[in-house]
Design a protein around this nucleic acid. Sequence first.
DNA 1: CAGGATCCCAACCGATACTG
DNA 2: CAGTATCGGTTGGGATCCTG
Lengths: 120, 120
Amino acid sequence: MNKDRCLLPATDDECRKAWLTLHDTLDIVGGKWKLVLISILRGGKMKFRELAKEAGISPRILSKELKELEANGLVSRTVLDTRPISVEYELTAYSVSLNEVISTMYEWGQMHRQKITGKA
Amino acid sequence: MNKDRCLLPATDDECRKAWLTLHDTLDIVGGKWKLVLISILRGGKMKFRELAKEAGISPRILSKELKELEANGLVSRTVLDTRPISVEYELTAYSVSLNEVISTMYEWGQMHRQKITGKA
DNA sequence: CAGGATCCCAACCGATACTG
DNA sequence: CAGTATCGGTTGGGATCCTG
């Protein structure tokens, strides 16, 4: 069995590790908001409020999501010395590493939709 | 902006559609069980009970998940004429189309883990 | 304005019991 | 054995209020 197509490595331990690795990706890409936020931030840096409004997300969740994105190095947080204070969020250069993941998923989704909805 | 790296097409409508397409993929790949089940079924066809035990999943959820996988053409369901009845589940040929998605995600996860955990 | 605290509701999932 | 029905616990998100 080819390792690229295999989700069932030889040992249980390997299997668990493979699953965890996949899970890392899912935590970022699979959540309800992360991809939405990333997609919005592709349009440029944004303040907390703007982001909340644009995404239609409550501040509590937005704050949590942004923290996770920041912890994963995908988003940078910059406190501006304004009065009152404001904070800008921006995609990092590293975030483009996700592009391949996203586009692969997008392409499969497109292909799949054709297959399911009676194709063309 | 290159369309491959763009999740923000020109119009809101296009954007919504792109998101739905991505969502189709997430529904399958992002759930708690789908990938687990697919991975187990990579080992060959399996009966309902076996699958439940192997995955550690309750019958109610298993049934639901399998229905969704079947509806998406990823798994086939075969009723065997035994007494009592038994049902075999098996990956379809189509299911291999997911391999690229999965391996891309896996590879990103691996790369990312290095980046986050202070790399090697 | 940022974002934490609180309260509430909805979705989800597991365990178990039950039917065909 | 396959799969559904019921119930109870847990998680996650929305709304709102509040403080720095």
